[in-house]
Nucleic acid binder design. Structure first.
Length: 442
RNA sequence: GGUCCCUUCGUCUAGCGGUUAGGAUAUCUGGUUUUCAUCCAGAAGAUCACGGGUUCGAAUCCCGUAGGGACCGCCA
């Protein structure tokens, strides 16, 4: 049977390095085994879910090159959840509860103070028909809980190994809210069955939840899903990754002109036993993917590494690959320009900083006037080639006796206004004789 | 408080009873580029969280302690 994986974000915030990693792992797992990848939007909570986040999530995935074979919103399947719910109800696995959130909160606090388990006490199970009727007359509506019957839930987690959860330490999950809205724990179980999901790979934050879900799945059908839980990523500060932390949102990286392949390269190697390096292509990442290289201990993300990877990618780019982007900055940027400058860039768009250096008619202050004037006297006529600079500076060297830094830095400074940059023998060809004269006029 | 998990160079990690504890990245040094970056060569960097036990022998197995993470919702 071919694999089916899914990524199920709730559209309540932007995608960041942490949750996109989960998406990537699921996608890679599917791709690597010739399976299917489904994007499921977990939007049952209509108050917190926002349409703009749905489109943002899809756009981010697309931008990164993570495509999906199928997508749907949980909000379109309320009827189906109701149907399955009725099934469980007639099987006696569901019971009505009438506590208000306040009452539940109070009980929890009491339990905490007493040092006991903070687990729902199932007092609704004792309710007589008359008591329920009284509640309804009071205007209370029931919410519905699933009766957990397993004491210990065990499964072989593809990443964490044998897991053994004490289900008595967990509350009976609420499946339907008082207002009739089904909750994630249930919807997810129904969907995973209906869409024939074979592998659920998700963050460690779902581990104990999985125990509950397996029991629900078993009550509906028979669980055939393999679960895998990877460790969560931490920020470089050591703090947890937050949806509100826009410093690491995919959106912010796109705005900083970080390449998708740089992000993908980082995400497919960080927190794994693989070398942290820039990958040539998405295909390479797919081919090299192995679930068992992913670590079970929480690692931290160093965003500097992402910048370094991106720099490498920029230097790899051939002119044709970035031509349209360069044209947007300045149509005068040609292949020679790009090849000369790209080694000095962190992002493709940083090239903008060099258009002035090459094209603009500005002049720079120089303290070494006599030296520069001598250099200009010796400046060869055009056309210039790769040898011009060497010939020229050799002349200057002979006439002045200068060498090394003393010889070259004043020239660079006078011609470009900068103390660093691409090789001068290439750069002067871009700038040209006229502009050099212009810049050193006064 | 309960439940589950984690702890090896700065960082990400390999390691499954006998290794000079390996790699990647970052750092430093030298060379190349007469700059910066790249590239090449090399160096430094880990009392394997701590304590105890099992064993001829423990990073590796067991117990405890400490630290970290996750969850304990009518969120997902």
């Amino acid at each position: 049977m071919s694999t089916v994986t899914r990524f199920a974000p709730s559209p309540t915030g932007l995608l960041h390095l942490g949750n996109i990693r989960t998406a990537l792992i699921n996608w890679l797992y599917a791709k690597n085994s010739g399976g299917k990848f489904i994007l499921r939007i977990d939007d049952t909570d209509q108050e917190r879910s926002k349409e703009e986040y749905i489109s943002q999530i899809k756009y981010d995935l697309e931008w990164l090159g993570i495509d999906f074979d199928e997508t749907f919103n949980q909000s379109s399947r309320f009827e189906r959840y109701r149907e399955e719910f009725e099934k469980l109800k007639s099987a006696g696995r569901i019971y009505a509860c009438y506590e208000t959130p306040d009452e539940l909160e109070r009980t929890r606090k009491l339990q905490m103070a007493a040092g006991g388990k903070q687990v729902y006490d199932r007092s609704a199970l004792e309710l007589s028909d008359q008591q329920k009727k009284d509640y309804e007359l009071e205007g209370r509506k029931p919410h519905w809980r699933f009766l957990l019957q397993t004491e210990r839930m065990r499964w072989n987690d593809l990443l964490k190994g044998e897991i053994d959860i004490d289900l008595t330490s967990l509350s009976d999950p609420v499946l339907f809210r008082e207002d009739g809205v089904p909750l994630y724990t249930f919807c997810s179980a129904v969907d995973d069955i209906d869409f024939n999901i074979t592998n659920v790979i998700r963050g460690d934050d779902h581990t104990s939840n999985t125990a509950v879900q397996i029991e629900i799945i078993n009550a509906l059908d028979k669980n055939k899903i393999s679960f895998a839980h990877h460790a969560l990523l931490k920020a470089s500060s050591g703090d947890k990754l937050s949806k509100r932390d826009n410093v690491i949102s995919i959106d912010s990286f796109r705005e900083e002109n970080i390449e998708p392949i740089s992000i993908l390269s980082l995400l497919s190697t960080i927190g794994t036993s693989k070398s942290i390096e820039l990958k040539d292509s998405i295909q390479q990442i797919i081919d090299e993917f192995r679930l068992d290289t992913i670590s079970t201990s929480p690692g931290r993300i160093e965003t500097d590494v992402l910048k370094a990877l991106n720099k490498k990618q920029v230097q790899k780019f051939e002119y044709d690959e970035v031509k349209t982007r360069l044209d947007k900055i300045d149509t005068n940027i040609d292949q020679k320009f790009w090849n000369t400058i790209k080694g000095n860039l962190d992002t493709v768009e940083d090239v903008a900083a060099w258009t002035d250096v090459v094209f603009k008619n500005n002049s720079f202050e120089t303290e070494d006037k006599d030296y520069i004037n001598l250099a200009l006297e010796l400046m060869p006529d055009e056309p210039w080639d790769d040898q011009t600079w060497t010939v020229w500076t050799n002349d200057i060297k002979e006439r002045t006796g200068r060498k090394g830094r003393e010889l070259f830095l004043p020239l660079r400074l006078a011609f470009t206004g900068l103390t660093h940059g691409p090789e001068m023998k290439l750069l002067i060809q871009l700038i040209g004789r006229n502009k050099i004269l212009e810049r050193t006029k006064n």
